[in-house]
Design a protein around this nucleic acid. Structure first.
Lengths: 208, 208
DNA sequence: TTCTGATGTAGGATTATTCCTATATCAGAA
DNA sequence: TTCTGATATAGGAATAATCCTACATCAGAA
């Protein structure tokens, strides 16, 4: 069984590897320290499962997920997040992730999840399932950032992290003016006025 | 040998445990998920080594370190950090940590470090040692913001809160250019580049 | 099926910010 | 006491960000 671990911290990768080693199957585990590396590894190899950290140094884990699913839709991706479940989870699942775990999860649950998704199944923790069910029916109880479109959300995170509009434009190959328009819409939907408000919001909500 | 692992993420704890299991000695590993738990465990037990994450949910790892060293100065603490922020490392060592590693470290180095500090020694990575050697001359042990002058500090808080330079200038009856100059000096002293960095720093350090 | 609202995209004009440079002051070092 | 470095202050030129407006697309409502 081939598994790819993508996380920017070596100790975390080593730790995950040790945990996975407890599986009965013979494992071939590869590592990537950022999104770029993960993407190029996946291009050349078919993995039964990919463990993908949400926060990577070069790009957001969700972007990486998108790219992976576009290039090889059959890849089973299990997202790992440092932060509380709700924020990213629904977005990740919509983008085609096979499962979503936080790093608070016990290693037994991780093993279970890997087993399930590597067989093509989906894995969602009970807590998350409940959360999704709860949030599906009432739109009103949504966090402000849930009102954002995917693109807006993507850009909000970059702004919150302090990237300049110029840099964002370059990264996304769009005009600065476009980025600025997104910013205006984000501010309006979030009912905020300053970039620092976004930064604080994202910190408080575990988005960055 | 008794070791305490303190990190808020279960998977990280599990991973570290697995890595430590490679040591030849018989291990007794205990876990704490936050500072409070770690402190109370240490009150009742003598550990050969404590692995302590810098960022904990309830309090800053450095605070926990201080409390531990005050209550039982003989405890050997190895600090673990997600970030390569040298700002923390020197403070940690001054506060009595036996070593400082980032989570980018390879597991072999972790084992080495644990071995060394559990015997009462110190462990500092080559990279960190070099950094310290270069920076020991000045006030590096201080929190970065303590290097700021009063005026600079005042302005940093306003910037961190998201006030525009124009507004700050008006509030303080000084030219925008002056505010901008302060900003440059603040960024240089804090070794940061973006307003969002200040916002995050101030939030993390309880300044706003 | 036509209309509408949300989304992704920019341009021009106006402001705000940054970068580099410069000055005065004052406290402490040589 | 003279010098130096940190501090508080700006100006001009170059960039970056904002505001307002505009347009195409597409999904869902009427």
């Amino acid at each position: 069984m081939k598994i790819l671990i993508c996380d920017d911290h070596k100790i975390v990768r080593d730790g995950l590897k040790q945990i996975l080693q407890q599986m009965p199957e013979t494992l071939c585990i590869e590592e990537a320290k950022d999104g770029e590396e993960a993407i190029s590894l996946i291009k050349n190899t078919d993995f039964n499962a990919v463990l993908l950290d949400i926060s990577l140094p070069d790009k957001n884990g969700l972007e990486v997920l998108q790219i992976i699913k576009k290039r090889s839709p059959s890849t089973n991706v299990l997202m790992l997040s440092m932060h509380s479940e709700e924020q990213y989870s629904i977005r990740a699942l919509k983008l085609g992730a096979s499962g979503y775990l936080t790093k608070d999860t016990a290693s037994e649950e991780l093993l279970l999840a890997v087993k399930k998704i590597s067989g093509g199944g989906k894995y969602i923790s009970a807590a998350l399932a409940e959360n999704i069910a709860f949030n599906m029916d009432n739109d009103k109880g949504k966090a402000p950032h849930e009102l954002l479109s995917d693109r807006e959300f993507e850009i909000m995170l970059k702004i919150a992290k302090g990237l300049s509009l110029v840099d964002i434009g370059k990264e996304l190959f769009i005009s600065i003016k476009t980025v600025s328009t997104y910013r205006t819409r984000i501010m309006s939907k979030m009912q905020m006025s300053k970039n620092a408000d976004l930064t604080m919001y994202c910190i408080n909500n575990g988005l960055i």
